[in-house]
């Protein structure tokens, strides 16, 4: 089953690469060489691009050539940013995005589980309602706005107060260089990115917990004489986990693939989203192409991981496939 899923994954990824290639290279009515070379390129550059990407050859050769440069030699270069190697710059950006995302994910999973469980257990009371309104507020606040406000408070307005004086200047500090600095630099971006998902996941978990509590097996668990804590964790929460985990996998994949763009820009973190943003501004086609492919690959990969987790969490799925 694992092998089959991997095979499917590779197949889908190949399909995506063909699609992306066609969109960039074979859209009628536009000269891909001119777009790759960028605005106001000289005829010399244009000629170099044509030769470089094999535009004088059939389409399938062009495709293979591009794939070779993306995955085998890894020497795809940007023309707008003269000589910038595309693959290394993506590889450099990935740790930044992952640092931001993993920290935020830990935060949002922990807090949303706490909120979801508390709200489900206090259902109908003022606590439940307050938490759900807070969650809605969290979902409604745009990330870039939260980020800017956070910056305004911690970087300028109150930076000199005792409370925020520890906040370093915007930017990324590699974990291997300075773990404490890494943490300080990322705490506020983590919170900013997590707020939306805390609200979302808290609400989803509350709903599926309440649904689980209506199930007959919860009544059975109580009839067995189990404690409420065990009923909650082992029976209600455990069966609600399937929804939660699949949602998490999909969101995580989309975020690694560039969904953290807004947070990265607001906090000056040079991650994949930042890279994509710059490339878009300069119409830097090779970089855009590479990041689009990278993003879609992550979505596909996280989908596959979700499927595997699904099977691990729910025996009904596992055995139906076997």
């Amino acid at each position: 089953m694992l092998l089959r899923r991997l095979g499917e994954m590779v197949f889908v990824m190949a399909g995506i690469s063909v699609l992306v290639f066609l969109i960039f290279f074979a859209t009628p009515g536009a000269d891909p060489a001119a777009r790759i070379a960028g605005r106001n390129a000289s005829p010399d550059v244009l000629a170099a691009v044509r030769h470089d990407f094999g535009f004088d050859q059939p389409l399938w050769v062009q495709y293979l050539l591009l794939m070779k440069r993306l995955f085998v030699t890894g020497d795809l270069t940007s023309f707008v940013n003269r000589g910038q190697k595309v693959i290394p710059s993506i590889l450099q950006a990935v740790p930044v995005t992952l640092s931001l995302l993993i920290g935020a994910a830990v935060l949002w999973v922990a807090v949303s589980v706490a909120i979801g469980v508390t709200a489900a257990l206090t259902r109908g009371t003022i606590v439940d309602r307050a938490l759900m309104i807070l969650g809605l507020v969290g979902v409604s606040m745009p990330v870039f706005w939260v980020g800017e406000v956070a910056n305004l408070i911690t970087q300028s307005r109150y930076h000199d107060s005792w409370f925020f004086s520890w906040v370093p200047a915007l930017g990324y500090v590699p974990l291997t260089q300075d773990p404490v600095g890494w943490f300080k630099a990322l705490v506020i971006p983590w919170v900013t990115l997590a707020i939306l998902y805390i609200g979302l996941y808290g609400r989803v978990l509350r709903a599926s917990l309440i649904e689980a509590y209506h199930e007959d097996f919860i009544r059975t668990a109580r009839a067995k004489g189990l404690g409420e804590g065990r009923v909650l964790v082992r029976h209600a929460l455990r069966t609600s986990l399937v929804t939660f985990v699949s949602l998490f996998g999909l969101d995580f994949g989309a975020l690694v693939g560039g969904g953290t763009l807004l947070t990265e820009i607001v906090f000056g973190l040079q991650g994949v989203g930042f890279l994509t943003f710059n490339a878009l501004q300069n119409l830097d086609l090779p970089v855009i192409m590479a990041t689009v492919m990278y993003a879609s690959f992550f979505v596909v990969a996280s989908n596959a991981v979700v499927d595997l987790l699904y099977a691990a969490l729910d025996p009904r799925v596992r055995l139906a496939r076997a």
Binding site: E215, D216, F217, R219, T220, A223, R238, T239, D314, P315
Partner: peptide, 12 residues
């Protein structure tokens, strides 16, 4: 003992 043992047992 409950009526429907399918839904009365935790599926996982």
């Amino acid at each position: 003992i409950f009526q429907d043992p399918m839904s009365a047992m935790t599926p996982v």
